[in-house]
Simulated scan of single mutants.
Amino acid sequence: MSLIKMLMSKPYHIRRFAILIVAGIALLVTSCKKDEVESLKPSLAIPLVYDSTGFSYNSEPLKPLIQQYTNLIQEAEKGRQTGTYVSEETLNAAFTQGNFSLQSATTPYYTSQLRAQNNGFFAELSKASGGNFYPFDRSWEGGVYRGYLFDEYGLEMGQMIEKGMYGATLYNYAVSLIHGTFTTATADQILFLYGSNPKFFNSDNSKFYSNPDKLMAAYAAQRDDATGTGLYSQIRLAFITLQAALKGGEDYNEYRDEALAAIKLNWEKTNAATVIHILQEATALLNATDQDDQKRAESLHLISEAIGFLHGWRTIDITNKTITDAQIDDILVVLKAPYNRSSAVYRFVTNSAEEAPKLKEAIGKIQAVYGFTNDEVESFRHNYVAEQGR
């Protein structure tokens, strides 16, 4: 008689007890097999430092891209001088020309935002240049207001270009590199686009270092309290782990993938933490009792900066980011800069009592997306590099 037939002939309580025993044995066998597989996973020796041997050579091909980005930003900043005209053609040329153009590395969506005729960021910056802006009397096409160049809606197009391309160009191109042949050279190039180097100074202070952290790495350093657990420190460890895994070969692909996921997540969280930091600064200015034109201009500048940082992540593939486009769109509306219609950022200074609380609302939405604790959000108020003098 088979075991099954024998059990079926027994009373229900006996059958049930026997089934539980069999299930328990099966679970134990499965668990043992899982432990056996885990024990077969090779142990990766993670060094204390990042190997700099090939970094200079491997990052060389990307230097023209960063130089072109620098040229574009410098051209855009000329418009901050009263009476200085910046042509749309010059901005377009800086974006599209060269053997390694910025356009080739930028998301198609953000390219359309930059280059759209009549109302693209390049066109709007050009139209505003040479003029003057006053938020309480928004005539003409915008212009300079206390050293910043705003369009007629109080949005600083220079920040939409500069900070938006942190995500839409630099991060976008960095993650595109992982789809080709993934080697230690690839890791060096991603590190270069992040803005750091193998020494990981955790500082953007050029007084102390000849090659300090730049780009997003500079902001990661500012948000890191140097206790070894902050965003910069987590990315540093992930890069070291990534390089070690790549050197180890295919047996260490699991470590490679985990390290890459950590780099992408913390890069994005640095962007989000910096948006929160900027909005906290803008809130303090808008709530100041001694309100004046300089504080109003700085408030609009900061809010534009935050919008640029956020907007640049729109349409980046969801496999490479945490925030969804719908969540970005929602926050942009709160910040009065929807992606698909004219902004009304000027209202933050013309109607501060009513609009300033919207910045706290935006912070709360970002906090919810990334699961930041209240203590983390509070810590984002700091620029630790400046405060710690490092």
Rank of each mutant, 00 (worst) to 15 (best):
G249L: 13
D317W: 04
K295R: 15
D329L: 12
L286V: 08
R223K: 15
H301E: 00
A245V: 13
A326M: 12
R296W: 02
D225Q: 13
L231I: 15
T324H: 00
D329H: 14
D329E: 15
G248T: 15
E258Q: 10
E250T: 15
E305F: 13
A297Y: 10
V333C: 11
A262N: 13
G248Q: 14
G312H: 09
T227Q: 15
L231F: 08
Q327Y: 05
G230I: 12
T289V: 06
L300Y: 09
A226W: 14
T274W: 02
I316F: 02
E254L: 10
A238P: 02
I328P: 06
E268Q: 07
I278K: 00
Y252D: 11
D329P: 08
L279C: 06
Q294M: 07
R236V: 01
A259Q: 05
L265E: 12
I323N: 02
S299I: 10
W313N: 03
I331P: 02
W267I: 07
S299W: 03
I303L: 01
F309Q: 11
L285H: 14
I278Y: 09
D290Y: 04
A297R: 11
I328D: 00
L300N: 12
T289S: 11
L335Y: 11
I240P: 09
K321N: 08
K214T: 04
R296Y: 08
T270F: 01
T270N: 05
F309I: 02
I328Q: 05
K295A: 15
L285M: 12
K269R: 15
A226G: 00
L242S: 04
A288P: 09
W267K: 10
Y252L: 15
D317E: 03
A245D: 09
E281F: 11
L260S: 06
D257K: 05
D290K: 06
D325K: 00
G249Y: 13
L286A: 09
W313T: 00
L332A: 00
L237P: 02
W313Q: 01
K295T: 15
D293C: 04
D292M: 12
F239G: 02
E268N: 01
A238R: 02
A306T: 08
I303M: 03
W267M: 10
G249N: 04
A297M: 03
K321Q: 07
K264R: 01
E281M: 11
W313Y: 14
T270R: 02
